[in-house]
Simulated assay, not measured.
Amino acid sequence: MALARTRRSQRGVDYWPGFVDALATLLLAIMFLLSVFVLAQFLLSREITGKDAVLNRLNAQINELTQLLALERSNTQDTEDQLANLRASLSETEEERSRLEELLAQDTGAGEAAQARISGLQGRLESEQQVSQRALSQVELLNQQIAALRRQIGALEQALDVSERRDRESNTKIADLGRRLNVALAQRVQELNRYRSDFFGRLREILSDRENIRIVGDRFVFQSEVLFPSGSAILNDAGRVEMKKLADALIDLQNEIPPEISWVLRVDGHTDDVPLSGTGRYADNWELSSARATSVVKFLIDNGVPANRLVAAGFGEYQPLEAGETPEVRAKNRRIELKLTER
């Protein structure tokens, strides 16, 4: 009668692992999403920083070329003004020449003086024509330089447009990558949750008749007395029987889980807070808890479980289930915990 009530009580607790399992899955998904978001932000910030540097460099070059263009335009205007002045002077000289020629025709007695003055004016005219020709050459050169500067500015503007277009494409690719990672994460989490639930269900069926095996959150908990003699890390006969059931369940589960899902069974060893005497094989509870977890892992490997799917960890007395110093509390804290999780 008492045993039946105990079993009914244990069956009533079966709803709690599912809730904790769902909560843990949600937390894992949130943590992974945050990691993806931080990674995407980091990559995006690096990409934008590089584009900003290129953009600033291009802007600086454009400003410099703009200043050079303004300077060249000013020089061109000065040259054109000088050329206009020379043309005006040339026009005046030609008018003076015409006037003198008229005077020469009217008064032949002043012919020699007029001829001398005409010769001087012709020399001056030729000199001014040479200066005008040089000015025209300078104007042509400046026009060519302005055209080259305009072509350089056009090339820089095209490069800037290409850079901005690549920046927009990079942002789109990063956003698409984040969406695909989120979808893949959700799929992997759902698959692992399904197989974890199957694993719990099978172990629950296999080990449901043992009162000293409990479920705490998302872990199966074996009391150390079920598996090991006191102060020892060698599995006893009952412990080997229970671990053989566990190995068979893991092998069946492994054949169903797709190979791309990275899962492991973590075996955690825990002791109570009573120090070891120091005369035995193990110096302290750290060594004892680690040795017991390792002993379980090695037994599972010997019975066909792949070694890359197993993890052994020892926690000593520093992760108790309950606080206290009574024999009952210490017995609960001496345990081996099994947890199916991601690598």
Rank of each mutant, 00 (worst) to 15 (best):
I261Q: 15
G50P: 03
L104V: 05
Q145C: 03
D237N: 13
L207W: 05
L83Q: 07
L34G: 02
S9M: 12
R73L: 14
I174K: 03
G154A: 12
L65N: 09
L300M: 07
R343G: 13
S74G: 11
A233S: 09
R266E: 02
E126F: 05
M31L: 14
K298Y: 06
F199D: 00
V264E: 10
W263C: 01
G324C: 06
I174R: 06
N212C: 04
R179F: 13
I301P: 02
S277C: 07
E211W: 09
L23R: 10
G12R: 11
E101Y: 06
A175E: 11
A22G: 07
A291K: 03
S170Y: 12
E325M: 09
S262W: 12
A110Q: 10
D107P: 03
R188T: 04
R180Y: 14
L321T: 00
Q82F: 11
D81T: 14
R214C: 02
A148C: 04
F222M: 01
I251M: 05
I48V: 12
N63C: 10
Q187S: 13
S289V: 02
E342G: 12
D21N: 10
D273E: 09
D252W: 05
L203D: 00
L125N: 01
I118G: 03
D237I: 09
I261F: 11
L136R: 15
W16C: 11
L90D: 01
A323Q: 10
I257E: 03
T49Y: 13
A40W: 03
Q223H: 15
I153W: 02
R87E: 12
Q254S: 12
N143E: 15
E169V: 10
N308A: 14
I153S: 05
I153G: 02
L246N: 00
Q133E: 14
R196Q: 10
L227A: 02
L90E: 01
I153R: 06
G178F: 12
L203E: 00
P17C: 04
L26P: 05
E157P: 00
G120D: 09
A70W: 04
A233Q: 01
D161Q: 14
V54D: 06
L23Q: 13
R194A: 08
I213G: 01
N171P: 00
A116D: 08
